[in-house]
Nucleic acid binder design. Structure first.
Length: 274
DNA sequence: AACTCAAACAACCGCCGGTCA
DNA sequence: ATGACCGGCGGTTGTTTGAGT
């Protein structure tokens, strides 16, 4: 824990990679394959720390990486996945072939966050939900943005609390910019229904086993929700607490209806789970 | 042409969980 | 059982680039 940076520790080179370094690393991995990053710098003859090599490869040199111009479809998907998963960039990136978590994270922080904040409808919807909780009905956009930032920071902090990290993430997204953002994708005012469809589409495409096991079951999702979720729903989700997917056509039942339903929301958001 | 400023991107940092000696 | 190491994740920072004046 708290180890110092390997680069500074060993006086290794930091900063931008040169074309020559890239070539060395690319050649080395072509021959030896990925992994064993600890040995890569030495064996390849690079004056870089292993983590730097790994990052460079994963975010830049990998042959399957698609660079630049994020399409509208990709952007749309990022927004919806972010709404669903929160700042789980690696997972979001997993749904976007050729995109890295770093790229998506950057894109979100520099482009999408501002876009979503700039949309008044999003702010309104979000503010309403916020004010219900905070008792501050005059929440302004700026404040909300701040809260959103704070929230993601909290989400990060919660990562370090062994339990409930994903709860925090999901919670944050539900009550900040993202839900309204999804709504904005369907400007006909029936964002809820549209959102349900969108989320469902996404969920159908997701690796539900991974999603279940990594987020829902890991959280003991249904324990969190308590007895408010009917047994057939639990079954539909592939066992709900039964230990790790495996159910062939099962869908993850992670629907806004669940979360917005009063009793469940209370259970979900209630202090004991956060 | 020179300067400023914001956006975009690359890279680093701190931390965690898993693995292995 | 334990401590060191490794791989991975998400947040943040630093640098580069491009538009505007």
């Amino acid at each position: 824990m708290g180890r110092s940076s390997c680069c500074s520790r060993e006086k290794l080179k930091k900063g931008a990679w040169s074309a020559a370094e890239d070539k060395v690393l690319r050649d080395y991995i072509r021959v030896h394959g990925e992994g064993k990053w600890g040995k890569v710098p030495k064996k390849a003859g690079l004056n870089r720390c292993p983590r730097s090599c790994r990052l460079r490869w994963l975010n830049y040199l990998r042959p399957d990486i698609k660079r630049g111009n994020i399409s509208d479809e990709e952007e749309d998907l990022i927004i919806r996945l972010h709404n669903l998963l929160g700042n789980r960039w690696s997972l979001i990136a997993g749904r976007l072939p050729g995109r890295t978590d770093n790229e998506i994270k950057n894109y979100w922080n520099t482009v999408l966050k501002k876009k979503l904040q700039a949309q008044p409808a999003a702010s309104t919807a979000t503010t309403v939900m916020h004010s219900d909780r905070d008792g501050d009905a005059t929440l302004k956009n700026e404040k909300e943005a701040e809260a959103s930032t704070q929230c993601s920071q909290d989400g990060a902090a919660s990562r370090h609390q062994q339990s409930g990290r994903s709860v925090q993430n999901v919670h944050c997204n539900r009550f900040n910019s993202s839900p309204a953002a999804v709504g904005d994708l369907h400007s006909d005012g029936s964002s809820m229904a549209a959102e349900e469809c969108d989320l469902f589409d996404i969920l159908k495409g997701l690796d539900t086993e991974e999603l279940c096991s990594r987020y829902l079951l890991e959280l003991d999702f249904f324990q969190l929700l308590g007895s408010t979720v009917p047994q057939d729903t639990r079954d539909w989700c592939g066992g709900g607490g039964g230990g790790g997917g495996g159910g062939g056509d099962s869908y993850v039942f992670f629907d806004d209806r669940l979360l917005l339903e009063g009793a469940i929301s209370d259970t979900w958001i209630g202090g004991e789970h956060i």
